[in-house]
Design a protein around this nucleic acid. Structure first.
Length: 615
DNA sequence: AAAAAAG
């Protein structure tokens, strides 16, 4: 009876490193990507751009952003998706011939393209197929959606309504996506229309696909774009930035599925890993580059990557990317390197939280953008049961032990359920992991002082259930999609309520239920108020003692003072009276009260002139 | 004050 947890999940660790096996290499004089075969040569999907007379220059073989239209090209080959955008690359040699010279993944990349649907998740076999068929859509009914900005394209209800191309459609089927999630329904038409976007939507609700599909479809219909070649510099067309290496990897994995057999090449670069391998990947061609900021800056400074052809810029976890630690670096990448300026690229910012201050910073990167807020599954955190317990610092470990034992009882069919334990410091993570280890708990840890190899191994081991307890710092707080996390424990509460929101969002994903337990004590007083508000807002039981703490510190006006509702979905700061750039977005009537909440602000009170979509 | 991100 003293079997360790690890025993119950033996054999589930399949470390499949799907790579290496280089299959037969097809040799074709002129490669036609699958999605374009059997098409009449002049289908409007790939209308030839106007031939450009002199393009001898190997270094800069494209018209450059100096041209007249938004994308610098004059080719007005109309697409119903976005006319203004097609003519961009005046560099193509007429008739689409340009793409023989395409540096992107078409010829060299695709020949070795691994089927990303083969090795779908190490842990999957251990779980019911039912559970994995994606998202619980019932949980997404009646979710509040708010949009603002000028001329907001209407949402769609099905993937069929949007023309993403046959290859992408097939990948959507392979992903078993039946219908778009609310954020996808709203964001995809906006992005396909070429608009800049600031979107608040909970991760786990299909956010990555919401920006990947339009990027991939956009690149596909501009396949002929001629990029500079020669030298070792590569010129990606899209850049996706994220705040952690693991998140960038995850986005890359997903994007590869969406781009499978489209001819669009996705590459990821991040720090802590050997750069040479990444350089080789880049040399084989890149259309969509997924990156963490530091490594990207490095590569641009080495002139191995140029941003001058970037036409799609996506910031995932955008509020984190623009907070104090990251902002200078992001500003450097977006404003001080060779990226086309705002207005000549399409910029999309996504996060589950979007504080007003950060929205203000972000607006520097955006042009006439649309703000989109999608309330969380179940209109707030109904799917996550949140508990707060008063635990003295000295009692935390024994209390955690109780929780872990209780969690073990809840295992279904002998299957492990995963527990993610957040601590505040790297040192704290090490010491708690060690203590768990000493006490025979199958735990591992992830934080920024561990080597990248250790970090990735820890994540794999956790996902697979080999070590169903993961102690983590905030490195794991955002974006990571780890199926089957049943319990998130805030062993140390964060100082910022938004971090709390992101942390508990690691459970209750894709419409499933989850449990979040927080240890609160005298060190967390500043969080009492926002935490109590948040819990109340999401219909959670708020302990009386917490309410007392909350009212006691009600005068404190610190950074957690932000009004209710700035979290889920959030609110367009342009609606705020205090913010006025001389542009009246709302035709006058201005709702200046900060209060907006699932019940109060949504829906009511907006000026009828504002395009506001409700599902 | 801490975490993350380049080496």
């Amino acid at each position: 009876m003293r079997t360790s947890w690890a025993d119950s999940v033996a054999n589930s660790a399949s470390e499949n490193a799907a790579s290496g096996s280089s299959g037969p290499r097809p040799t074709r004089a002129t490669y036609i990507p699958p999605h374009l075969r059997n098409r009449p040569p002049s289908s409007d999907f790939l209308a030839p751009p106007p031939a450009a007379p002199s393009l001898g220059n190997d270094r800069v073989g494209y018209g450059g952003p100096a041209g007249g239209s938004r994308w610098g090209g004059g080719g007005g080959s109309a697409s119903k998706l976005d006319s203004g955008r097609l003519g961009y690359g005046s560099g193509g040699r007429g008739g689409g011939g340009g793409w023989n010279n395409r540096i992107g993944g078409l010829e060299r990349g695709r020949e070795r393209e691994v089927n990303p649907f083969d090795n779908d998740g190490d842990a999957e076999p251990a779980f019911d197929v039912q559970e994995n068929t994606g998202i619980n859509f019932d949980a997404y009914e009646d979710i509040p959606v708010e949009t603002s900005g000028k001329n907001v394209p209407p949402p769609v209800n099905t993937f069929a309504e949007i023309d993403l191309g046959e290859a992408v459609n097939q990948n959507i089927r392979r992903c078993k996506y039946v219908k778009p999630t609310p954020v996808q329904r709203n964001a995809i038409p906006i992005l396909l229309a070429g608009r800049d976007l600031m979107a608040c939507a909970q991760t786990g609700s299909g956010k990555t696909a919401a920006f990947c599909f339009p990027i991939i479809a956009g690149i596909m219909r501009e396949q002929y774009v001629q990029r500079p070649h020669g030298g070792r510099t590569v010129y990606p067309l899209a850049l996706i930035l994220s705040p952690t290496r693991e998140l960038s990897c995850q986005i890359h994995d997903e994007a590869k599925k969406f781009a499978y057999q489209t001819g669009v090449k996705v590459v990821v670069v991040y720090g802590g890993a050997p750069i040479n391998q990444q350089l080789r990947e880049l040399e084989r061609g890149v259309d969509v580059l997924v990156a963490t900021p530091g490594r990207l800056v490095d590569l641009v400074e080495r002139a191995r990557v140029s941003l001058q052809m970037i036409r799609y810029l996506a910031l995932d976890e955008a509020d984190r990317m623009l907070d104090m630690g990251f902002e200078p670096q992001i500003r450097k990448i977006v404003e001080q390197m060779d990226m086309p300026p705002c207005g000549r690229r399409q910029t999309m910012l996504f996060s589950a939280t979007f504080p007003k201050e950060i929205q203000r910073l972000a607006s520097d990167f955006l042009s006439n953008y649309i703000f989109l807020a999608v309330g969380r599954v179940g209109s707030s955190t109904d799917l996550i049961v949140q508990r707060v317990e008063y635990v003295h610092e000295t009692d935390k470990r024994s209390h955690l032990m109780d929780l872990l034992h209780a969690q073990r009882e809840t295992e279904v069919n002998g299957k492990h359920s995963l527990t993610l334990v957040f601590v505040e410091t790297k040192k704290g993570a090490d010491s708690l992991e060690h203590w768990l280890y000493v006490n025979k708990f199958p735990a591992t840890s992830i934080h920024g002082d561990r080597s990248q190899q250790e970090r990735e191994m820890a994540l794999r081991s956790f996902k697979s259930g080999k070590t169903p307890i993961l102690v983590a710092t905030d490195v794991a707080a955002r974006g990571l999609d780890i199926p089957h996390v049943a319990h998130v424990v805030n062993f140390d509460l964060p100082n910022d309520i938004d971090d709390y929101v992101h942390r508990i969002g690691r459970t209750g994903r894709a419409g499933k239920t989850g449990l979040a337990t927080a240890f609160f004590n005298e060190n967390n007083l500043s969080l009492a108020r926002p935490l109590a508000d948040l819990m109340q807002e999401s219909n959670q039981e708020v302990p009386a003692w917490l309410t007392r703490y909350a009212s006691r510190v009600s005068f404190s006006g610190g950074k957690n003072r932000r009004s209710v509702g700035a979290r889920f979905g959030g609110r367009d700061m342009r609606r705020d009276g205090s913010f006025n750039r001389g542009t009246d977005y709302y035709g006058g009537g201005n709702n200046s009260s900060g209060g907006y909440g699932v019940s109060a602000g949504y829906g009511g009170g907006y000026n009828p002139a504002v395009a506001s979509a409700w599902d």
